[in-house]
């Protein structure tokens, strides 16, 4: 359709010859898309590294009921992530990450609703939905803080783990509680390192997303976008926020489920 319009206005010229935007998207939105593409590569790199390291370790062969933590094989994720706040000692595998996933998806929904309200110049509704999005983001960050604390402090039990002593240059069997960067009670040292790196990098994105959302909320309340005549900033930051949700969908599958 656009080509016909161009042919009428500039005979012999294609939509790529300048004077219009062939992608029919503003500069800012386009650059946000390309930034997200590069960010997708970064996260792909991290998740694929997880796959590489996981497949270079032996998997657990026995029955899931008899599973114990060991540095000999990669742990079953649902045996590691089975704690829920206020329900200490009750094994509820994956329940908490499931809740976190729902929270992030819901905050993504409220973000689309904010973008939709922005299209209609409906300031009151943009304010309302942006506020819900911020609440969702903060709740997710709170959940992640709890999960990290639990992961670092451990389940309460100690596990005998083979740990490499760099000073003496030998492998030693020591009792490990919780998780750190050099050893953890759940499995090979790389397991905790990857957990910290991948969920940490994602959490940083959520954090900066909440800051950006707050900025948008502030500008909406002070009427910046009404004066500007459009709410495109909500859309651009919305793209970023959905991307953060998208990444979590992948982290949820590849880190917690598989």
């Amino acid at each position: 359709m656009s080509t016909t319009a161009t042919a009428v206005n500039n005979p012999g010229k294609s939509i790529w010859d300048g004077g219009q935007s062939p992608f029919k998207a503003s500069y800012g939105k386009l650059m946000m898309w390309f930034f997200l593409l590069s960010d997708a590569f970064t996260f792909s790199g991290l998740l694929i590294t997880y796959g590489l390291i996981r497949y270079s370790h032996p998997g657990y062969e026995g029955s899931p009921d008899a599973f114990t933590f060991s540095t000999e094989y990669w742990p079953i994720p649902e045996k590691v992530f089975e704690a829920v706040p206020f329900l200490h000692g009750v094994p509820l595998p994956l329940v908490f990450v499931g809740i976190m996933t729902f929270i992030l998806i819901l905050s993504s929904v409220t973000m689309v609703l904010a973008v939709e309200a922005g299209h209609r110049m409906d300031r009151k509704n943009v304010e309302k939905w942006m506020l819900w999005t911020i609440v969702g983001g903060l709740t997710f960050l709170g959940c992640q803080a709890w999960e990290w604390t639990h992961f670092i402090n451990g389940s309460g039990g100690e596990t005998l783990m083979k740990v490499f002593n760099g000073e003496k240059g030998v492998w030693e069997t020591v009792s490990v509680m919780g998780a750190g960067l050099t050893a953890n009670e759940y499995g090979p040292p790389d397991f905790a390192a990857l957990f910290f790196f991948i969920t940490g990098f994602h959490g940083t994105h959520v954090f900066s997303g909440v800051l950006l959302n707050f900025l948008i909320f502030y500008n909406t309340v002070t009427g910046v976008y009404d004066r500007r005549g459009h709410y495109e900033m909500v859309e651009k930051v919305g793209l970023y926020w959905h991307f953060v949700d998208l990444v979590w969908v992948f982290v949820f599958t590849f880190f917690y489920l598989i």
């Binding site: 656009s2 062939p22 992608f23 029919k24 998207a25 386009l30 898309w33 593409l37 997708a40 590569f41 792909s44 790199g45 694929i48 590294t49 796959g51 590489l52 390291i53 996981r54 497949y55 270079s56």
Partner: peptide
């Protein structure tokens, strides 16, 4: 969005598929 925008986002993701296959194989 416009088709050309859809493809300029999706086609580069093929590199990810390649990296995935290569590195999982490498892990084995």
């Amino acid at each position: 969005e416009v088709k050309s925008l859809i493809w300029s986002i999706l086609i580069p993701m093929l590199f990810v598929v390649w990296l995935l296959v290569a590195l999982i194989y490498e892990g084995g």
